[in-house]
């Protein structure tokens, strides 16, 4: 771990506001993009980011300073996002869909994709499918880990993931 980061963490443990602000300024921009990928709108993403950082500063004493600090705070933000959506009872993951196959891709349609456009499409995805897409594709969780985290079956996780990708591709194609 970088010495500068270690000093910042120690400052945060002591409750030093300048250290807390420095950590916020360093990671908020990256984490805001993550929050936007989980939420329906910017207000909800900001709530998640705020709640996440309050958790980070509250639990920073428990960070063992051995692993990646960024990885640790990112996990807290992702868990906060899931909790946030769960609290608002917006996670409905239906096991009824049977989309075991992902439709063939047309790579040409991806040329004009940027963050704003793709987030616009992702926000239109059903909550459950969106969370599974983010956990699998961005955070690198396996379907087994996702099934345990969201209390669903591995099959549901896989089919929802394919559903998310199919819907996303369909939206991209329609927008061209």
């Amino acid at each position: 771990m970088l010495e500068e980061e270690s000093i910042l963490i120690k400052g945060c443990i002591r409750g030093d506001r300048k250290s807390q602000e420095a950590v916020y300024r360093k990671y908020a921009n990256k984490l805001y993009a993550v929050c936007l990928s989980y939420s329906n709108d910017k207000a909800s993403a900001q709530d998640i980011l705020q709640e996440g950082f309050l958790k980070i500063f509250g639990k920073i004493k428990m960070f063992d300073q051995k692993g990646s600090f960024e990885g640790w705070i990112r996990r807290i933000i992702v868990n906060t996002a899931i909790d946030h959506l769960r609290r608002e009872q917006r996670i409905h993951i239906y096991a009824g869909y049977d989309e075991s196959e992902y439709l063939a891709e047309n790579p040409n349609v991806y040329e004009n994709l940027n963050l704003e456009r793709i987030l616009g499409f992702v926000r239109k995805l059903p909550e459950g499918a969106r969370i599974i897409l983010n956990l699998f594709a961005v955070e690198g969780y396996s379907h087994k880990e996702i099934s345990e985290k969201l209390s669903i079956s591995v099959g549901t996780s896989k089919s929802q993931f394919n559903r998310a990708k199919n819907l996303l591709q369909q939206m991209i194609l329609e927008s061209e």
Binding site: K30, L36, E105, Y110, I118
Partner: peptide, 30 residues
């Protein structure tokens, strides 16, 4: 798939500034 990779790269490679007042809210909460 290519779509997964593009999505992951866009999320991880991007930085979006949250509103300035967000830190003030966090600071107030703290």
């Amino acid at each position: 798939t290519r779509l997964e990779n593009i999505y992951k790269d866009l999320i991880n490679g991007s930085q979006i500034n949250p509103p300035q007042e967000l830190w003030e809210d966090i600071s107030r909460e703290l």
